[in-house]
């Protein structure tokens, strides 16, 4: 897909019609507070079960490593 997804990376040919086809708000499902951590969500503070099955309680591992 490339790695440039800004307005400036879009060409200059546009249709006249302005239309909104759909809107979604991630805020209802996201936790917007983590910094430098991989929030597994398994910790109790997240208050829900997280699919991350590598690191059950802490927010330290990404689950990338296996043994």
């Amino acid at each position: 897909m490339g790695n440039k997804f800004r307005l400036d990376n879009i060409g200059e040919e546009f249709e006249e019609e302005q239309e909104i086809n759909g809107i979604y708000d991630f805020k209802t499902t996201r936790n917007l507070v983590s910094d430098r951590t991989f929030c597994t969500g398994m910790c109790e503070c997240a208050g829900k079960t997280c699919p991350n099955v590598c690191s059950p309680y802490c927010s330290e591992h990404c689950g990338c490593a296996t043994i």
Partner: peptide, 11 residues
Amino acid sequence: GSVVSVSSGVV
């Protein structure tokens, strides 16, 4: 957290 699907006219 916002996602909006738009026509190119909006862009």
